[in-house]
Structures are given as structure tokens and as C-alpha cells.
Design a protein around this nucleic acid. Structure first.
Lengths: 244, 244
DNA sequence: GCTATTGACTTGTTTAAACAAGTATGTTAT
DNA sequence: ATAACATACTTGTTTAAACAAGTCAATAGC
């Protein structure tokens, strides 16, 4: 439900670019032209455009215009982007997804856990292990740790469905920022035990720290993907005025 | 060299956060307080803050303030971020780097290459293979393809040093946007031939398309990393007003 | 024919103002 | 005591305006 004007314009432009009404390599209408079209101020247009630029849809050129650099990508594997739940990602990738909870316990953060996850020593946590199935194949092994105080009433049943759905819709908590680190690690015994591995000896691992609307880190997640079903997309823009 | 005011404020706040003058979990001074401090408008302050939020340094909370969520990260392996050359990354990670050019040829894009790289069929390209050494170990295998028309006069000597340095400082071209895809792939014969692999049967692969200031894609790169020396960091923020 | 300049575009930066909306802390009335 | 309200903060959105700076093409002057 985008209520803000800039959100509406952003979405509208985005769709038009994806549908190639504004084709690859062409210029968008000038900011002033868009101001007339959408009946808003130039600042609002610029905000929408800057969001598109961040996502690698367009690129502004001083004195020239705004060029479309979006090209449709064929999705072959399981693509990760933004802050999404497993359900959302699976849906976007057009795959049938299911989840099996293989461990659901509580524990208290000790020195070793604190070092690895960033939870202060003594924090009470839920510890969850889940196997994710895509089109029937066991491809992803998820380890989640939640601050118990932030996610009260979590059950294995909820974990089997969607924890994010529970957090956002039942608890009414908003997820805002997620910091993630991608690495490639050797397979573990748990990987071998639970997943359908094809003689791979490595896994694509996404480790993430998630913050709620209060700026409190309430989740640490490690998501271990079988290499041939893993894909992560990113767009980087060069900062102007780099040091030196 | 930040000339813009918002750049200066952004850098100043960033340093103060990194030095923990504004510690983790605390609130920044309010926007109005910062307006007084920096003698600028609120919009300019907000722009600096929004840049920090994008990088996962702070998180704004409506009606409350702006919370610092930056925590120093220990850099264990070779970290990739932003748009950086190999030289820049190596320097930031405190490693000694060297490069060996193992192939330097020209070729013309055919159907197969066009499909994989996005260069139009018939484009004249430089094709370069390089082995990257970190602290003396062969850990990264790079494949680069450059639009010959955009990077004239490229030589193996330049490739052994820094192509980005040549592009930006000698040719005066500006690199603006880079779209990257991270995957994990099985090792190839070239990986085995050139790199010091420790019985890994996978590589961390970063494939990237780079655009210059004209919005023209002029580079396709595939960078193949030995898993234990690969790390990619990312910060995602949840979009408000998500569809439905 | 060539160069220099002008002018009409484009995007980039900054300001000032107004109002909306969320949060916290009072005080008041019940 | 508690609920309701006022109010003084906070950040969020939008507008209008002015000027800077980059690009491009037509034009004027040589």
C-alpha cells in the first residue's frame, strides 16, 4: 500500500521500465516533463528516480538525462534479494516450498555464541534448525537464533510455517535493517545429514543480523544453500567524492 | 574530495560513528540540533543521514530519533564491497597483492558470448585472464572482457598493474554502476591449472556488468575466488509500503 | 570553413517553509 | 488511580524557489 507520492511514482516508473515502455539504453522523460505528468514537485520526482538508480534500473547523467540500464534477467536458480522471508523468495522464484523443523530449543548465549552472533552473553534465545525444500528437494539448511524477549510465544508450528509472518503480522513488529555476510564454507555433518547434496563439498552461506524498528538486533540467521541453487544479486554505485 | 555540503557532513558523522563518539545503540543528536551544529538546512542533514542508513550505520525511528547500529567488524578474509578494484580491496584488507596475466587476446562477440555477457553480437572485445596472488598464494582467477572501443590502448602491462587505474586516471572515464551476481560453481580446469586449491571442488564466483558515465556497459567480469578467502558484505533495508 | 559564444536545455545542490504523523511526558478531569 | 487530553518534542513528506554546473546545438564573427 504505497501511500506516499514518491512511492507511487517509483512503482509506476519501475513497472514501465520492466515492461520496456522505457527501453534499455533510452532516456527517461526529463524531470520537468515528469513533474508535469505526475503533477508533483521536482523533488518528489528526483526521489523516485534516485531509488531506481540505487537498484540499478537507471543512471543519471549530469546535463544529459536519466538513462535506463535495466535488463531483464533470466532466473535460473534461487535468487536472494532485499529483506525477504524464505516464503517470499520462493514465491518470487516460482518454486514450491516447504519447511521441516528439525530442532527447536531454547538456550542462553555464552561467550562462544556471543562472539559468533553478537548477542550479549546471558541473552535468552530460541535456537531453531530448519530444512527447506524446493520442489521436493532438500536444498537449504537454516539456523535461526531469536531473542526470546522480542519474539515471545514462538512455537515449532510457527517455525514450520513462517516466522517472519508471525513477527510482522501477529506481533506487529517491523523489520527494518538486515546486515548480511556471504561466504562459502565446507559442508558440515548437519548438511550431510539433512540435505540432498550432490558430492558438493562446499555450501553457499548467508549469515545475517536483523534489526527491528527499535534498532535492536533480535535475530541471527545462518542460511546454508546448495551451491547450484544459490544466486545473490547486488548493485553497487560508485560514491562521488571518494577519499583522495 | 567532497565538495558538496551533504558529503562533508556524511563523512564527518561516519567517522564519529566509527570512532564511537556516537556509540552503538545510542541516538544521534536530533536533526534540528545537527542543523544548528553544521549551519545548514534540515534537508541537507537528512540526506547525510539517509546515506548512513543505506550503509547500515544508523536507523531512523519515526518520532524517536536516529539510532546508531554500526558495530566494528573484524575482517577475517578478503572482503568485497562497493565498486573497488582488486588493488583497492587488497589494500583495505591489509594484504600484499600481485597479478599475473595469463591470457591477453582480442575477440569478437558471438551468440554464445552475447548470451552470457550481454555484449551485442559483433562487439570487438579484449579478453583477459589474470591470476591474483594474495600474500604469495594464487587465490583468485579473473576473467575480464572489455569493449575495445571504450578502453583503447589496453596492454598486458596495464592489465598486470591496474586496469581500473588506467580507465579512470589515464582515459578519464568514470565508472558509475556495477551489477553483480554471486554464485558458487564447480571448479574448472583453469582453476585447477592456475590456483592453489585445497581440495575444494567449488569456487565463489562474482560475475559483474560495469557501466560507465554514459550508461554504456563496457565490462563483463567473472572473478573466481577460493572459498576460504571470500567474503561479501551487504546491508538491506526493508521497503516501506511494500505491495500488499 | 572554423572557432567562439550564446542560449536553451539537462541534472545537481541547497534552502525555507509548511504540514503530517509518531512518541513521550506532562496535566487535568473523572 | 486511571483515563483522556494537551503539548512539546521527534522524524516523514512535499512544495517552491534559486542557483550551480554540465551538454548540446544554433548562431555570430573571424
Amino acid at each position: 500500500m504505497p501511500k506516499a507520492i514518491f512511492q507511487t511514482i517509483y512503482q509506476d516508473l519501475k513497472i514501465k521500465i520492466e515492461e520496456q515502455q522505457y527501453p534499455f539504453q533510452q532516456l527517461l522523460p526529463s524531470e520537468n516533463a515528469l513533474v508535469e505528468h505526475y503533477h508533483c514537485s521536482r523533488n518528489t520526482i528526483r526521489r523516485a528516480i534516485s531509488m531506481l538508480a540505487e537498484e540499478g534500473y537507471v543512471q543519471s547523467m549530469h546535463g544529459i538525462g536519466v538513462r535506463v540500464i535495466y535488463q531483464p534477467v533470466r532466473q535460473t536458480s534461487f535468487t536472494i534479494g532485499g529483506i525477504e522471508s524464505f516464503q517470499e523468495s520462493a514465491c518470487r522464484n516460482g518454486l514450491t516450498a516447504s519447511t521441516r523443523v528439525v530442532q527447536f530449543t531454547e538456550l542462553v548465549s555464552d561467550e562462544h555464541i556471543a562472539e559468533k552472533t553478537g548477542f550479549p552473553i546471558g541473552s535468552e534465545l530460541y535456537y531453531i534448525q530448519r530444512v527447506r525444500y524446493l520442489n521436493g528437494k532438500a536444498l537449504i539448511f537454516d539456523i535461526n537464533m531469536f531473542l526470546k524477549a522480542c519474539v515471545p510465544g514462538l512455537t515449532p508450528e510457527i517455525a514450520a510455517h513462517s516466522i517472519y509472518d508471525y513477527i510482522e503480522n501477529t506481533l506487529g513488529m517491523t523489520i527494518v535493517t538486515s546486515k548480511r555476510i556471504m561466504t562459502v564454507e565446507r559442508i558440515t555433518q548437519a548438511d550431510e545429514k539433512y540435505l540432498d547434496l550432490n558430492d558438493f563439498n562446499c555450501m553457499a552461506v548467508v549469515s545475517g543480523h536483523t534489526y527491528n524498528a527499535d534498532g535492536l538486533m533480535f535475530e541471527y540467521t545462518q542460511s546454508r544453500h546448495r551451491p547450484d541453487f544459490f544466486c545473490f544479486q547486488d548493485t553497487a554505485t560508485r560514491k562521488q567524492g571518494y577519499p583522495k
